[in-house]
Structure formats: structure tokens, C-alpha cells
Amino acid sequence: MVGERGWRKAATATLFLAPSLVPLALFTLGPMVASFGLSFLRWDLIRPARPVGLANYSGVLADPDFHAAVLHTAFFIAGYLPLVYVGGLVIALGLNQRLRGLAVFRSIYFLPVVTSWVVVALVWKWLLNPDDGIVNYLLSLVGIQGPGWWTDPAWAMPSIILASAWKDLGFVMVILLAGLQAIPEDYYEAAAVDGAGRWARFRSITLPLLSPASFFVLVISLINSFQVFDQIWVMTNGGPAGASSVVVEQIVKHAFSYGQMGYAAAMSWILFAAILGVTLVQFRLQQRWVTYG
């Protein structure tokens, strides 16, 4: 039997939790379960849904457009991740030198992070305009004939990578800078006393003690790269000739242009499984290189 106090407790808990639990159940948990169910159906929103077993999954896995999208997403990750991490690390190291004006620099480098993707994508599309863009003009000043950037299938993905790294650099920098600032100064002093040079101190103190922050940044950035969409939608819409088509863009097109709801849902679960798998592997591998405390 639940006593009066028990009821009271339950009522209080409900009062505090219901306002978030109900929307989460309706708009996140419910749709998540429904999406899983949907991935076994064929449904175009008009005719009645029809169960098709695993046909959507096998269809996606055999779909050459999906293969291309996976390849492009992987290409994006391979270009973007090292660029944004090394760039962010260099800036963070530079800002960690007890400089005057640190706060000003930090705010400037962080500016693109708070700007919407649509704006960043539009501005970069204009900067990287093949004929009249300022970047190709600057390149021509030093005698380089600039590429066709987002109009050239070979350069579409690199253009998107460049814009993405520019936007996210500040995010990586802020996390790594916080990590650097948490490293006790006396570690460096002790190592200097022992005759360790700059490089040795960087390798044996900075990198290991920064590894939790690096791990965090890499996990988040990788998850976000799997979901790359906004910038591609605006800069290239997956083109030219499908050269920058990625997985999320395929999901959106299948669901909202071709009306293949079940197929899109199956694709989204494959994406989710891939993200989950890669994140788990990262957590597994962290014992090898991440030092806590």
C-alpha cells in the first residue's frame, strides 16, 4: 500500500517532471519508436502503409546513391576533422600564452560559431565564387588560377570542408583552451627544470593532459560530421552532379521529395547505428590514448 506520503511524493515528482517528460515523449521518444516501426513499411503518406519486412534496409544498402553519399560523408570527415582539430589546437596554444587581449581574440574566433549555417554557407559561396569571388581574385594575385570550387564536382566537397572548418574552429578552440588552462603550471616548470625542451614538454605534458578535451571534441565533431546537411543544402544542394550528396541530404530527399517515408526511416536508422557504432569504438579506444587526472 502506498501511504499518503507516498502519494504526495508521486504528485510532487509528477509536477516537476511532467512539463518536460510529456513533450519529450510526444516529440522525441514517440517519433523514435515510430521511426523504427516505419522503417519496415512502405508508405508514401497517401496510400495505406504496407509492411515490407527488411526490404527498405536491403534496398538502402544496395542503393548506389546511398553508397555515393556514404563515400562523400567519409570524404567530408577525412578532410574536416583533421583541419578543424589541428587548426583549433594551434589557435588554442597561441591563446594560452598569457596574452593581452586574449578575450578579444577568443570572441573573434568564436564569432562564426554563433552565426547560422545558412549565413555562413551563403557568404562562403560568394567568397568562393569561381569567376568573381574574392578568393580566386586573391589567388590570381599570387599567380594561381583558382579552381571552380562549388561548381566543379572535384572541388565541391573541399569547398564545403573549408567553410565548415572555418565555422567550427572557434568551438574546438574554446574547448581545447579550457583544457589547456586546466593544466597546472608547475608541471611545465618541473619539466623545464629537468631540462625538457619545448617539444618534449608539449609531447609529454600538454598532449596527454589535454587528451580528455581532445577526446570530447573529436567525439562531438565526428557525430556532427555524420549529420552534415545545412551547408550542403545551401552551397551545392548535393551537386554538382551529386558530387556532394551526403547521407542526411539523401534522407531528406527520399522522405520529402520522393515520398518514400519507410525508406528514409530505414536510412536514418542505418545512419544512427553508424554514429552509435563509431562513438562506441571511440570510447573503447580512449583507454589507449586518453589520460584522466
Partner: peptide, 18 residues
């Protein structure tokens, strides 16, 4: 729920809104 990307829920969410 933090781990569920919007892409997974977007199709049923759209249907729900409809």
C-alpha cells in the same frame, strides 16, 4: 534521447504534425 539525431525522428514527427 540526447543521442537520437533529428534525422531519425523527423519523418514520424512530420507525420505527427500532419
Amino acid at each position: 534521447t540526447l543521442m537520437v539525431p533529428l534525422q531519425v525522428t523527423i519523418v514520424p514527427l512530420f507525420v505527427e504534425m500532419r
